[in-house]
Amino acid sequence: MSDVLAIADHRRGELRDISFELVTAGRELANETGGDLHVAVISGDTERFGEQLKLDGVDTVHTVNHGEEFNHGVYAQTVTQLFDAVAPQFLLMPNSVNGLDYAPAVANRLDLTYVSDVVDIGVDGSTLTATREMYGGKVETTTAVEADQVAVSIRGAEWPATEDTGDATVEAFEADVDESAVRSTVTGFEEVGGGDVDISEADVLVSVGRGIEEEENLDLVRDLADALDATLSSSRPIVDAGWLPKNRQVGQSGKVVTPDVYIAIGISGAVQHVAGMKGSDTIVAINTDPNAPIYDIADYGIVEDLFDVVPALIEEFQ
């Protein structure tokens, strides 16, 4: 029992990036345990996915041909059966939105200890050490798990993707899916956030976060955007509060943007936000908290109150 089983993530005909990151994390773990790395892909075009997952470091790819799109009822049953067949020491799953929808059920069904959203993992004998964030990213922690078998979900973009092809064996896995236990049905997908503006097309974005405090203060950043001939965008809390429409949201669940200049105002830089703007050419951050993670990726920073800096900046351009 030293193998590692990783479950690939896909949507609407494409393997998602985290699938290739799971391979890297899985290979690291398998090197520690001395076991094999198994990767499973469930539903969709499993023939093509199976070929794409024959990556460096993978020993066996298991393909489960059942339906097109993700369904947690199918996944929960299938992953449980794969786990019993492979009998791995570690089960790796993605901490994606779909991962959130099946990984806890699998862990419950298999009575496994579950550690979610890890950003680093190590093994010391029979102890797994997982690095995780707590308190909204304010601290990092290490958690030791003493168990023969453990279920883990990994955060996206923490491991590099494995891209090189290897010589894995691809095997079809015959899952026994009880359809009467599949009690939710996906009826469709919808792109959201259309409308008056496409922030992903903008060259310059003035982006506002929780630090703006009140809805009426938004006029301040609107004025700045006007003065700079820039487009206004925001982080999640502003959209959640209903102050700006969804099409203005930058981040994991919003838009991915890559402008020439991104000015983050009162944005702390949570990982979900950074995922949507880290590809910007020049990043400027204005935030009173010198420890805010936004400064980790900023090229330029001003550690001052936005209510002092922004009016001064507007003045410069009038």
């Binding site: 050490t129 990213g137 601290v139 030791a144 993670p293 001003i302 550690v303």
Partner: peptide, 20 residues
């Protein structure tokens, strides 16, 4: 509980920003 918190620390800041 099979989980034991063994360490807690502030994440290292990796900022190489130019500050005004």
């Amino acid at each position: 509980n099979e989980l034991e918190l063994t360490d807690m620390y502030e994440p290292e800041t990796e900022s190489d920003a130019t500050y005004f």
